[in-house]
């Protein structure tokens, strides 16, 4: 099918874009990479009256180091995240996970800001935003505010952005020292949305015990699911099989809430979560130990 007619605006500065958002608030949608929005428009699931295309706002496309953080412009293509050397050095979890997002042809166009604003529970980048404790900068014509990623997602395809706000920048802290990481998912075909996936991070103390852990899941609820209780089981522990198995069991049985879909039952998703959590925690623990040596 073909998209319904819409009014098209293509600002070439952020200021212009914000002005248009104020003018059309409520009727307008941002067009970023279009890799989620255009399919929805082709199917007429989405019929926005006005599109504001950010592809010519070059000031929103950057990857910049700032102290112990990396700041990324919302219009940065997913493909650039995958190949950025400062991200690979300081936030290797993101480099590893970026390769699971769709196919190279989609990553060449899709953006970091678009994926986070889209808040698809099956998407990788919202999971990464939680796992990495990202902060998100939202701006409208009258000002800007920073939102903690943990407060940003508000359910299926829903965020706390106001109708006239644009997500402009994402702040990603460096992964702390002695941190191991892993990203694992199972998809029917490489590049498809995954049936289940997990990002795992473990930070060890000087004695090699777990100081801090994170387990965040995709396709496991109505947004990215941060399994805090399960991760807490690991804290203060040496990461042996028994405690890893308890955390995996708790996360997969209690903390996630998958819905199932045409490709998978809920039970199978829970089973995958259990298996993936154990594998991911073992890999993360091993990488953290290697960084101690």
């Amino acid at each position: 099918m073909k998209p319904a007619p819409f009014e098209y605006h293509v600002p070439d500065s952020l200021e212009q874009a914000l002005g248009l958002m104020r003018q059309y608030a409520g009727d307008a949608k941002i067009l970023a990479g279009g890799q989620s929005l255009v399919p929805a428009m082709n199917f007429r699931v989405a019929q926005p009256g006005v599109l504001i295309d950010l592809n010519r706002v070059s000031e929103l496309s950057f990857i910049r180091g700032k102290g112990e953080t990396i700041h990324v412009g919302a219009m940065t293509r997913e493909r650039h995240l995958e190949f950025d050397s400062s991200i690979e050095k300081h936030i290797p979890l993101l480099t590893e996970a970026a390769q699971f997002i769709a196919h190279p042809q989609i990553r060449n166009r899709g953006t970091l800001g678009g994926s986070i604003a889209n808040a698809d529970p099956a998407a990788e980048l919202p999971v990464l935003a939680l796992a990495l404790d990202a902060r998100l900068k939202a701006q409208n014509a009258s000002g800007e505010r920073w939102i903690d990623a943990h407060d940003f997602f508000a359910g299926m395809f829903t965020t706390r952005l106001a109708a006239d706000e644009i997500l402009v920048e994402i702040e990603l802290p460096f992964m702390p020292p002695r941190t191991g990481w892993s990203f694992m998912e199972v998809a029917p075909r490489a590049g498809d949305y995954a049936l289940m996936g997990v990002a795992a991070l473990v930070t060890l103390d000087e004695n090699g015990k777990c100081k801090n852990a994170k387990l965040v899941y995709l396709n496991a609820g109505d947004g990215p699911v941060d399994a805090k209780e399960s991760a807490r089981l690991l804290e203060g522990e040496a990461l042996k099989d028994a405690v890893i198995e308890s955390a995996a069991a708790m996360a997969s049985e209690k903390e996630i809430n998958p819905f199932g879909n045409i490709h998978t039952s809920i039970d199978f998703q829970r089973h995958l979560a259990n298996v993936l959590t154990k594998k991911a925690l073992k890999q993360a623990a091993q990488r953290a130990e290697e960084s101690l040596q």
Partner: peptide, 10 residues
């Protein structure tokens, strides 16, 4: 890139 997910005007 996918030409079905880009508008010609872009």
């Amino acid at each position: 890139m996918r030409s079905c997910l880009i508008f010609a005007i872009q």
